[in-house]
Structure formats: C-alpha cells, structure tokens
Simulated scan of single mutants.
Amino acid sequence: MIYVIGGTHECRQICEILKHHHLPFILSVATKLGEDTYGHYADRLIVKRLDAVSMDALIRAEKINWVIDASHPHAVLVSQQAIEAAKATGTTYTRFVRKTQEDAASYGKFFENEEEALNYLSGQQGQIMVTGSKTLEEAIKVLGLERIVARVVPSTESLHQCEHLGLKPNQIIALLGPFSVEMNRLLLKTYHISYLMFKEGGEGSGYIEKLKACQLEKVKAIVVKVPYINYREVTESYEALLEKIKDYYNRHVAHDNSSCK
C-alpha cells in the first residue's frame, strides 16, 4: 500500500499516475478545501492533520511500504513528521517537489523566513498584498491592519480568520490559484499594490507568474525562500517518479502476482 501526503496541486497527478498503474493508495489532506480539490482523485481519503504518531500508526495498520510526500514545500513540520514516521517504521520515503525555475526568479527580494520579510516591509511605504492566511496575523502585528490586502483560498477557515483579524471586505481576495500573469497583474493594479509578499514555489505553483506580474507592474516581489530540509530522498519530475512507480510495481505487485501462480 502507498500513502500520499497531499497539499499541492502535484498530488492530483500523482494520484492519477498511481491509478493508471492500478496501485492502491491512501491520500491524506489537512483541510476541507483539500478534500474538495483532491478528494475525488483518491482511492481512500483521510481529511485530518496527521502528526508523526498518527502517521506511524497509519503506516503500521495499513501496511504502508511507500510514503510519497507531496505536501506544501513550506509545510516543514509535516515533512519532518513524515520522515520521522517512515524512519521509525522502516518505510520508503520519497519527497516529490517540482524544481523552481531559477532563470525566471531574477526579479524580487528574497528572505530566509517570514520574520525577515516582515521586518524589511515595516520600513517601507505602500500597500502590501500578502498571500496565504498563515502569515496574516503576524503581518498585521508588524505592518498594521490598514496596509494589508490578503489573498487567501476561498475556504471557511481562511475567511473566518480574516474576519477575526479585523480585515474589511475590500481587503480580502478569496480566490483559488494558481493564477496567470495577467490575473496577477489585474489584482496588483486593482488594489494599488506596492509590495507582493509570497512564498517561493516550484514550477506550476503560480510562483513564476507572480514574479513576472510584479516585474511588469513595477511591484516589489517579497519572496520567502523554501526552508531547507534534509529529505531522505527527493524527486523533482513526474518522469523520475514514474520510474520509481514502475520499480515499485515490479517489486510489490508483479512479484506478488507471480508468487501466487
């Protein structure tokens, strides 16, 4: 059995590849939005934030022999817990993340973490668009409420948080990305944005489109780098993952079928 940890758009294609090869798998996502977005691609779905202990229990109970981690690259704790659970159970672990297009990332100012980015912005003038709900509370503390425009996913959880933090309706953009360069440009112009703060991401995540839109609109891109994690194994393309899937099939499915003859 294979366990896929969702959280990025890549998990959809991973599920499709596994289904195409008739490999049983379990997909876990943390939120209702994840369920609505990716749930119908899964053979079996878990909608819950799992920690290392619950991942360990799942691996043992379901006889998982391969963990494919397709969680968000900034969800450091999730990956660390998955690595811990896989190591404790002797399970193969593969981190799947699309490689960033380095040549397209020349525009913008890069920071190691959100704290550094917010400290920099505190000394600047102008409206700031912040993407993602997890950064909002700290951003408002450091920058003040009036300067913030929040771009969040259209989930009940995110909208409740925006309301709780005191953001007005004209400060909230609730849309599900990734967006095109043109859509990003339109939002930046409409809200008179001087700085766009967002997280570094891989190809296909909408990251490059944000950078290009900022460059065209003369908006400063404030980018929080992907945290470094010493993954046990990293795969950066679907082609490489497909080779691993074929190898898994030969070792666990074809071998089992031949043993039954």
Rank of each mutant, 00 (worst) to 15 (best):
E115W: 07
T92N: 09
S106A: 08
K99Y: 09
Y107T: 06
E114I: 08
A82F: 08
R95C: 00
E84Q: 15
A82V: 05
E115G: 00
Y93K: 05
A105E: 03
V78T: 15
V76D: 09
V97E: 15
K87F: 06
E102N: 13
N113K: 01
E112L: 12
A88T: 09
E115H: 11
T94H: 00
F110S: 10
A82Y: 11
T94L: 11
P73W: 03
T94I: 14
N119S: 12
R98G: 05
I83L: 09
F111D: 06
F96W: 04
Y107S: 01
L118R: 05
P73S: 02
E114A: 08
E84L: 15
D103F: 11
S79G: 00
A117W: 05
G108H: 01
P73A: 01
V78E: 02
E112S: 14
Q81R: 13
G90I: 03
E114V: 10
V78G: 05
A86D: 00
A105L: 02
Q80V: 07
A104D: 08
D103T: 11
F111I: 07
A104C: 10
S106D: 11
V97C: 08
R98E: 03
K109E: 13
F110G: 03
E116C: 05
Q101E: 09
A88H: 10
T89I: 02
D103E: 13
A85M: 05
T89H: 08
V97W: 04
E116F: 03
E114D: 09
A86N: 00
S79A: 03
L118Q: 08
G90V: 08
K87C: 06
A82K: 05
A88C: 04
Y120M: 06
S79Y: 00
H74D: 01
Q101H: 07
K109M: 14
G90R: 07
